[in-house]
Write a protein that binds this DNA or RNA. Structure first.
Length: 1069
RNA sequence: GCAGGGAUGGCGAAAUGGCAAACGCAGCUGGUUUAGAACCAGUAAUCUGAGAGUUCGAAUCUCUCUCCCUGUACCA
């Protein structure tokens, strides 16, 4: 009996330990962060997930594990750590599920987060039907049906993000959870929208200001002196005029200045999704989600004046420690280019007496202005219709129609085809006054610059190709450059010629002079252009934040913040209405009563038969996905505040995010918009920092290692000269539908030969009759190819890539008819390939299963051990035995302290010693390395360090309590459950989570001697142990006196001897 | 096209100017034990994508080339 007892205690029972400590942390609120603390703050943030029904796979927690290690480390270092988590829970999948099934997205969302299982792992009664069948909404794959009587039915049940996350042992402060779709949260998203509406951007102060300051300027002096980022077509007015405007006129004008504004814009319309998409939601001309075609369409939409912040978003990148590739893509996205705007006057037809039209162009090369030989307008340019001559009208209209039909995708894919049409009109060159033909062409984009270019064929390849194609002259304005073959665009070698006052000038000087001359003429000025467009903020979707907006007389009005949130209305259908309105158009209770400040029935809208004065229609669009994620990091600081988005005290304490970890796919979406809103919040005095995250790390993707079984395919070749004169010409590939062959055959050619013989003998009858004839003839050669593999479930494959055929047959019924050809060892192996994890590739690995089999601590260590955090790397479950084995070794190291009663911490069995010199050396080496590694986010190398440390301490038979205590703390950020358990076994009653990080003491690492490598001409030949305090000269003479040295030299006299004390000796000669 | 990152035993990787391949997986040999597993001891893997340069010394720095990944693009 006692033997069994001790064996039980000895075992590392990770399931029990992990459950115990997860419960302890939850009950004791171990990771609850206080908003006021004497400790220094540290804010560690993860990008919050979208909770999908498919749940987590092992790739998802990678970043969370890294941030958790850092958060736990900072707690050991004495910081007050804020480490929250929540859900970005508005989004398309729940809405599309609602469209299919009618189930409210809020229900789907809460199932995906909270799951359908109770604490004991049984399906909650509300998800089980009378006959034991599980209700569809509780299942991961909605197309399957399952019953609680089925074996393994739980695999198909949505466990919920929260349960999956908890199982990995994160130190999140769940008191601070936010969900973007929760009205208590989106109340504040709506609040920010109102703040943006009530702000304008002053160029003088270079920041956002309250709209009231603008109104008072208008009232006192009109708008002629106002420098603001606003619409381009603002009319000038005096104070008197302003004061005489009607209220509606005033609102219309103010809308042209507000930071969020309503405007008719050309948008990316996706008919299949029934919504507009932002530029960053379109990949290669089709929607990012679903890959549907996207067309351009004019719609009245809310927009965000992010362009006002273009320069500050660019400048701010210098202040933050974010990855360079991410900064580069933001820089690219903002797309600043310096140049000039120039105005070309259209020469009016002689018959016309009307005033000349003007074409404004943007160019980065004003120095080449004398090289202009034509102008090109985008087909969508507003002047096209006005200036086209009657003779050219038919051609131009046909061209416009043709380009409109071409999708954006076609236009981008087809860069080579040159197309365009002549308008018949001419513009006047600002300096030479020569007439310049005006063309239209789809290589000019309406959305960039002014949608018009001055075409300089000698200096721009696209203009050059266009000119060649349409036989337009190509004047050369570069000194000593041949442009007969292609355009010349090298600014550094540019010297201008044939250009009047620019002759002989290099690029930079010519640009300056050209701008100066344009300004003199009043026909241009220096200009900085940004690619960054204002962000369209309306979506025609149901499952998003409703706008706090109603319309009076067509003008948008904000609902006062005290009446927020405006909650999503119930709708019958989640599709757009028959009249093409967004889904909220289906709501019958969706009007704003300004008398009661409540949402009321549409029947009461003023002007309708049963209408009531003061009741107005509410906005039908909802906000885009990025609205909820653009300030969530600040809301975490004070998430339960009912009266404000956050208290000034909380904001003052937490300030900003110290470490933000997430995927690089958010580079130009979330991370740009969040920076924009942060700068706005800063301008308006709500936050103290104008960048929200000091440091950001992009974790790499964990890819899956797919497994394939090979279909047997023979390559049949003709032995002899074929029709094309080659020997052994392949003439046919014969594929066996029902014969699979072990991958191991492909490693050994001999195996293949024997396989061919085998197949000929045993499986000939499996050939289709038509193929049989190839085997009758001796002159045919038979080779063997393995190009068709069939995905099989990776969980069936063992660490040596072998697969049990019976399991495989059990996994897929149709494999029962298949003949599997094993190799000569009787094994059947699979082919492996690295691919993105996805259900259809059967390579998804579920972290729950890893936790059950090896424990969360093994999973955490293994994910870190795989490789550098930022790098993409393949998952291979087989390798986890390495970190799991390490934990078992670690566990054994503490055996002397295991005792049936934890209260007595007297070690049993083994004599406990004071730390030896070796113990201390190992420990402090580890402390130094691990601390440095965590600071550098080099988590993979510290896992190795732990392994080395435990191997060494085991070899030393270390039983020193102080060493083992320190080691437990070191390991605790990585493997917190086992660390807590060992800490308790060492006699502690408190959680290890705030135990001070062990202090590194260099004195334990001081060495008295060094094993010097001795190199000859750079090649290491032998080593010699020498005292470290030995002088350079003594080392040299000692080494030279060695017999081994003389052997190496073979009588030669060294030319040079390099001695680097403490490092190396190199003898040259 | 442009921008960024990369290429090291069969695999993941370590080494950032000084002993290449630490650590782990897989492999191989032996031991112990088992229903299966687990565990212990040992062991091989030839040289850093190619070429040139700097250096006493280069995986590491510089240049050229090849290939791969990621982002982005008729941006005037």
């Amino acid at each position: 009996m006692p033997e069994i007892q001790s064996k039980r205690i000895m075992q590392y029972n990770f399931n029990e330990i992990e459950a115990k400590w997860q419960k302890y942390w939850a009950e004791n609120q171990t990771f609850k962060a206080e908003n006021n603390s004497d400790k220094e703050k540290f804010y560690v943030l993860d990008m919050f997930p979208y909770p999908s029904g498919a749940g987590l796979h092992v790739g998802h927690p990678l970043g969370y594990i890294a941030s958790d290690i850092y958060a736990r480390y900072k707690r050991h270092k004495g910081f007050n750590v804020l480490h929250p988590q929540g859900y970005d829970s508005f989004g398309l999948p729940a809405e599309q599920y609602a469209i299919q099934t009618g189930l409210h997205p809020a229900i789907t969302t809460s199932i995906n987060v909270d799951g359908c299982l109770d604490i004991n792992g049984n399906v909650l009664p509300e998800y089980v039907g009378e006959n034991g069948a599980i209700k569809n909404m509780a299942l991961i794959d909605k197309t399957i049906s399952t019953s609680i009587n089925d074996v393994n039915y739980q695999e198909n049940i949505i466990k919920g993000y929260r349960k999956q996350l908890d199982k990995i042992g994160f130190s999140f402060d769940w008191n601070r959870e936010v969900r973007t779709s929760d009205p208590k949260y989106y109340k504040w998203t709506q609040w920010i929208f109102i703040q943006l509406f009530n702000s304008w951007y002053s160029i003088d102060s270079d920041k956002a200001e309250d709209i009231d300051t603008l109104i008072s300027i208008f009232e006192n002096e009109g708008n002629s002196n106002v420098k603001a980022v606003c619409d381009e077509d603002v009319l000038l007015f005096s104070a008197t005029e302003w004061n005489n405007f009607s209220e509606k006129q005033k609102q219309e004008i103010l809308l042209q200045y507000r930071l969020t504004y309503l405007a008719e814009t050309e948008v990316n319309w996706c008919p299949a999704l029934g919504t507009v998409l932002a530029n960053d939601e379109i990949i290669n001309g089709v929607s990012e989600r679903g890959g549907h075609p996207v067309v351009r369409k004019k719609m009245t939409q809310w927009s965000m004046r992010i362009s006002a912040y273009a320069q500050r978003l660019l400048d701010g990148l210098d202040k933050i420690d974010w990855p360079q590739p991410l900064k580069d893509s933001q820089t690219n996205w903002i797309g600043r280019s310096e140049g000039a705007s120039a105005i070309f006057k259209v020469i009016p037809p002689s018959s016309s007496s009307s005033e000349a039209e003007k074409i404004e162009v943007f160019t980065t090369r004003p120095d080449t202005i004398f090289g202009v030989s034509f102008m090109t307008l985008a087909p969508e340019h507003e002047l096209v219709a006005k200036i086209t001559t009657p003779e050219q009208k038919a051609e131009v209209e046909a061209y416009i129609e043709a380009t409109a039909k071409r999708s954006e995708r076609d236009r981008m894919a087809d860069v080579k085809t040159i197309s365009g049409a002549f308008t018949g009109a001419y513009a006047e060159h600002p300096f030479s006054k020569e007439p310049i033909p005006i063309w239209i062409g789809d290589y000019v984009l309406a959305g960039y610059g002014t949608g018009a270019v001055m075409s300089v064929p000698c200096g721009d390849q696209r203009d050059y190709d266009f000119a060649k194609h349409f036989n337009i002259p190509i004047p050369n304005i570069f000194e000593g450059i041949d442009i007969s073959e292609e355009a010349f665009a090298d600014k550094s070698k540019t010297v201008i010629a044939n250009s009047d006052f620019l002759n002989g000038l290099p690029y930079k000087k010519a640009v300056k002079r050209a701008i100066f001359e344009l300004e003199q003429l009043g026909q241009g000025k220096g200009k900085i252009n940004y690619r960054l467009r204002d962000a369209v903020f309306s979506r025609q979707r149901y499952w998003g934040e409703p706008f706090p907006v109603y319309y009076v007389d067509g003008m948008p009005q904000m609902i006062a913040p005290e009446h927020l949130p405006i909650e999503l209305p119930e709708v019958e259908k989640y599709l757009p209405t028959e009249t093409g309105e967004p889904p909220l158009g289906n709501a019958t209770v969706w009007a704003w009563d300004t008398n009661t400040n409540k949402v009321v029935s549409n029947d009461l809208i003023e002007g309708s038969p049963s209408g009531v004065n003061g009741v107005y229609p509410l906005e039908l669009n909802t906000m885009p996905g990025w609205a909820g994620s653009s300030q969530y990091f600040n809301r975490y600081m004070d998430p339960n505040n009912q009266d404000a988005i956050f208290s000034p005290e909380a904001m003052n304490y937490w300030q900003d995010v110290d470490l933000y970890i997430g995927g690089s796919e958010h580079a130009t979406g979330h991370l740009l918009y969040a920076r924009f809103w942060q700068k706005f919040m800063f301008d308006r005095g709500f936050v103290p920092k104008d960048e929200f995250a000091k440091k950001l790390i992009n974790q790499g993707m964990i890819t899956g290692t797919s497994a394939f079984v090979n279909k047997l395919i023979f390559d049949i070749s003709y032995n002899g000269k074929g029709p094309s004169g080659f020997m052994y010409e392949s003439i046919k590939k014969v594929k066996f539908q029902n014969v699979f062959v072990s991958e191991s055959y492909f490693d050994a050619p001999i195996g293949i030969m024997s396989l061919i013989e085998q197949v000929k003998e045993k499986y000939l009858h499996l050939f289709e009759e038509e193929d049989l004839k190839y085997f009758d003839e001796d002159k045919y050669l038979i080779g063997f190819v393995n190009e068709e593999g069939i995905h099989v479930d990776v969980s069936l494959v063992n660490s040596s890539d072998e697969i049990e055929i019976n399991e495989l047959k059990g996994w897929r019924d149709d494999f029962n008819n298949v003949v599997f050809i094993k190799d000569s060892f009787g094994k059947f192996t699979v082919k492996r390939e690295v691919e993105k994890m996805s259900k259809s590739k059967y390579n998804v690995v579920n972290p729950d299963e890893i936790c059950d089999e090896y424990g969360a601590d093994s999973l955490r260590l293994y994910e870190m051990f795989l490789g550098p955090l930022e790098q993409s790397k393949p998952w291979n479950t087989a390798g986890i035995t390495g970190t799991h084995g390490f934990l078992k070794k670690l566990w054994r190291l503490y055996t002397p302290y295991f005792d049936s009663s934890p209260s007595t911490n007297s070690p049993s069995g083994v004599e406990v010693s004071e730390p030896t010199k070796d113990n201390l050396k190992t420990l402090h080496k580890t402390i130094k390395k691990v601390e440095k590694d965590i600071e550098n986010f080099s988590f993979n190398t510290s896992v190795s360090t732990f392994m080395i440390c435990v191997n060494e301490l085991s070899a030393q038979k270390c039983t020193s309590k102080s060493v083992l205590e320190a080691l437990a703390i070191l390991v605790s950020p990585y493997a917190p459950h086992i660390a807590e358990e060992l800490w308790e076994k060492l006699g502690h009653n408190e959680s290890i989570s705030t135990a001070p990080f062990p202090a590194f003491d260099a004195s334990h690492l001081v060495e008295s001697s060094k094993e010097y490598p001795v190199s000859f001409n750079g090649k290491m030949r032998f080593k010699i142990e020498l005292p470290l305090d030995m002088s350079k000269e003594d080392i040299e003479s000692t080494v030279m006196a060695l017999e081994k040295t003389q052997q190496q030299l073979q009588g030669r006299t060294p030319k040079k001897i390099i001695v680097v004390p403490g490092k190396i000796v190199n003898i040259v000669g």
